[in-house]
Computed example of a mutant assay.
Amino acid sequence: MDSDSDFYGDEETISVLEARVEDFDIVAWWDCRNDMTSYLRSTMQPQNTTQIAAPLYNAYEGEPGAWRLSESIEQFLARLPPATTDWRPGLDWIWIANPYIPPGPGSTRAQFREGGAERLRLLDEFAKMATVSAAKASGKPLNMLRKDLAKERRETVEDLRELAVACNVVTGKWMLFADPGYVNDVWARVARATANNQLGIGAKVETRVESEKARLICVYTRDFRDKDDVARVLNRMRELELVRPGRQIYYKSDAWTELGIYGGNNWGIQASMYSSNEIFSYIKSVASRPS
């Protein structure tokens, strides 16, 4: 390129381009563009730019001790502070639901209680007969009797778990015990995290019966079989400083609560399903797996 004129072309090229400019119909060009734009718009799906708020749920709506969707969390905590809210008939617990989780399918708890009680009765009968049999057969070692009882107990637990699944009694809860002087603070952290969809499906705290009694707080998960979700909730509780190092807490299924299986029960069945130490070990094992 020897000169600026070479950039625009020779005189013949410039003459042709100038003629094209003079003949260009800008109105027709815009009309064509408008027609094409209209066509493209007609073939596109309309976009709904309006944001639709997600529906909120309250599984405990109407309960005297429950959070209401119409009030803020701070209003709820001020209305029902567990440190000073006394027990009365119908107000055993203060409840809060996770408003982002819809209620699950209904459960047949009465059927589960009936079937579960019958299975526990069979365990009782087996234990009595095995004990009598061992007493008559003096040559049968005591450790053999213990093995037989342990085997029957394991089978009972498995049967009860299957029955719980069949009756959809699969919710469970992490259990915290808060000192009376700190129960408002602990409950406030649980309530806020539950309302913000950071924990499980709901939570509850005992109302006051004795001023010096530690208060039970339950943090619920949807399904005791979902170990990853159980672990997720526990880990979030640790982040919220609800679970402290060296202080173990326990997870219990609602199925066991329905059947009255508590610590030291006559059947020798472990009352809790998981411990926090066990689940923290599970979290470490999952984290160390190769991706």
Rank of each mutant, 00 (worst) to 15 (best):
R113V: 15
W87H: 14
R236S: 09
I201R: 03
E155V: 00
Y60H: 12
E155D: 15
V27D: 15
L123D: 07
A164P: 03
G106W: 01
L40F: 15
D10P: 06
W93T: 11
A287V: 11
S275D: 01
P82M: 06
G172V: 08
Q248I: 12
Y250P: 03
T171M: 02
Y57V: 07
L242R: 04
E118A: 15
G181N: 11
N196C: 01
W87E: 05
P81M: 01
Y182S: 13
T221D: 13
E74I: 12
P81V: 14
Y100H: 15
Q75K: 13
V183M: 05
A203K: 02
V169N: 05
S107N: 09
S70H: 06
S133M: 08
R41W: 07
S211N: 12
T13G: 14
W29V: 12
I14L: 11
D25F: 06
N168A: 08
E12G: 09
S276N: 05
G9D: 07
T171P: 02
P245H: 04
S15Y: 09
E114D: 13
L40V: 14
G104S: 11
R189Q: 05
D226W: 06
I73L: 06
G263D: 10
E155I: 00
P81T: 10
Y251C: 05
D23W: 09
R88N: 07
F112T: 08
Q198V: 00
Q198L: 10
G264E: 03
R79W: 01
Y251R: 08
L216Y: 02
I217L: 10
V21K: 12
P46K: 15
A127P: 01
T257G: 07
I101H: 04
Q248N: 13
R215V: 14
P103V: 02
G200Y: 09
C167V: 07
E152D: 11
V205Q: 00
G268N: 06
A66Q: 02
F76L: 09
A191M: 07
Q45H: 15
R154M: 12
G62I: 12
E11C: 00
R161P: 03
L40T: 14
E278R: 10
R192M: 08
G139S: 06
D228W: 03
T221W: 06
R109I: 15
F7H: 11
V169E: 05
R121M: 10
D229P: 01
W95Y: 13
Q248M: 13
N168F: 09
A78H: 05
S42P: 08
L91C: 04
D10S: 09
D6W: 07
S38F: 10
L142T: 12
I101L: 01
L163S: 09
L40P: 02
C32Y: 14
A137L: 09
R33I: 15
R109L: 11
V286W: 08
P82Q: 02
Q270V: 12
W174K: 06
F224M: 08
N48F: 11
K227Y: 09
V157L: 07
E155Y: 00
F76G: 06
I279E: 05
W267S: 03
D23P: 02
S138E: 15
R41A: 15
K284T: 14
L199I: 05
V183S: 06
R189P: 08
I94E: 04
E158W: 00
N197I: 02
Y100W: 05
I73Q: 03
C167T: 00
F7K: 13
F7A: 14
G106T: 13
P89S: 05
Y251N: 02
G106K: 11
Y262H: 13
T108P: 04
P245W: 06
G268A: 07
V21I: 14
R109H: 09
P180A: 04
